[in-house]
């Protein structure tokens, strides 16, 4: 034997750490069996460290025992037999063993009788009186599964959000435009055919001029070296002058555009008209369309439809300011509430 009382500690440590091979493990166990004093050093909690907690013993059911496996009814297991008898799980053989053990002993009989008394029985006079609210009419819409309900809620939220985003556009026209542009052309007393632009809409960046609408029936020439803000209604700008006047290329006399006092470049829209469409016209069409659609009614109708389909109780509400503009939204379900103020 390689393991002795002089070197066993090293083997013991290897064993505890799970590093001892099976042959030496067997030898160590044999050594500990021969020397019980050293066996006490083996902490069972530490030896278990080598075994991971996820391992299970698959044959545990084979280890389980029944009352019939007990050799006899004894004072220690008597009550367990009584309970099994009352539970109706005692075999006929075990019932006979229990009966023999009791042997008309009044104390044992009373114990068994007490166990028979602790069987509960429901009070049938207690009934649920509100079955009516639980019942569903046969033609009732069947509920959608959770998945569809969630999808429907998400779709409603997306719809409301989309409406919320779209709605301000008819008033703001563009996230980059802070006020509704008003463009007018009028005569400048100092010039024969002047153009005065009354607008002050800052643009994100200058847009090259590419319009084709003649201004005052003139045909100006563009100074291609300049990139200027796009101004609908003005065909081409020849020279941006310092200060406030930009002359259009018109031979005699030149037309002028009077820029606003603000130093920002002029623009009515931040979108490009490279596709040939007139952004102002598009904008106006949208504004006209938006004016005809009641987005709030649309949203309410969508929510009502959702409630009808899913039997949900979703509701939307809004807060309106003195001008009739929506300032806050509230979306409520049976369990949740979402609210938000209009982003200014």
């Amino acid at each position: 034997m390689t393991i002795n009382k002089n070197n066993y500690e090293a083997y013991l440590l290897d064993y505890i750490e799970g590093n001892l091979d099976p042959l030496l493990t067997a030898e160590l166990m044999a050594f500990l069996a021969e020397n019980p004093a050293y066996d006490q050093l083996l902490d069972p909690t530490e030896t278990n460290n080598a075994v991971t907690g996820s391992q299970v013993f698959a044959a545990k059911n084979q280890l389980k025992k029944d009352l019939s496996d007990l050799p006899a009814v004894t004072p220690a297991n008597f009550e367990e037999f009584c309970i099994a008898a009352c539970e109706g799980t005692l075999s006929s053989n075990d019932s006979q063993r229990l009966s023999n053990y009791i042997d008309n002993d009044p104390v044992k009989l009373k114990t068994l009788a007490l166990y028979r008394k602790v069987r509960l029985s429901p009070d049938l006079s207690v009934i649920y009186n509100h079955k009516g609210i639980l019942r569903k009419p046969a033609g009732k819409t069947r509920p959608l599964g959770h998945f569809y309900a969630y999808v429907a809620v998400a779709a409603s939220i997306v719809l409301l959000t989309a409406l919320w985003i779209i709605k301000p556009r008819q008033e703001k026209l563009s996230p980059l435009v802070t006020e509704k542009p008003t463009l007018s052309v009028e005569a400048d007393p100092g010039l024969k055919s002047p153009v005065t632009v009354k607008t002050a809409v800052p643009a994100e960046k200058d847009v090259p001029l590419a319009l084709s609408v003649p201004v005052n029936d003139s045909e100006p020439v563009v100074d291609e070296t300049h990139t200027l803000p796009r101004i609908p209604g003005i065909q081409r700008i020849l020279t941006p002058l310092p200060g406030r006047i930009v002359s259009l290329a018109n031979d005699n006399p030149p037309l002028s555009v009077i820029l606003p006092d603000k130093p920002e470049p002029l623009a009515l829209l931040s979108v490009s008209a490279a596709d040939g469409s007139d952004p102002v016209q598009t904008m106006n069409l949208f504004a006209q369309l938006a004016d005809k659609i009641d987005f709030w009614k649309t949203a309410e109708t969508a929510v009502q439809g959702f409630n009808h389909l899913t039997e949900a109780q979703v509701s939307i509400n809004r807060t309106i300011d003195d001008e009739g503009k929506t300032t806050a939204l509230l979306l409520e379900t049976e369990r949740y509430s979402f609210s938000g103020k209009k982003w200014k």
């Binding site: 009070d123 207690v126 649920y128 079955k131 639980l134 019942r135 569903k136 009419p137 046969a138 009732k140």
Partner: peptide, 20 residues
């Protein structure tokens, strides 16, 4: 739906007693 309603009739009392 009919089976659901039958379950209301059959089991709601028992559940109510159990919980109560």
């Amino acid at each position: 739906v009919a089976e659901y309603n039958k379950s209301v009739d059959d089991y709601s009392d028992g559940i109510f007693r159990f919980i109560l």
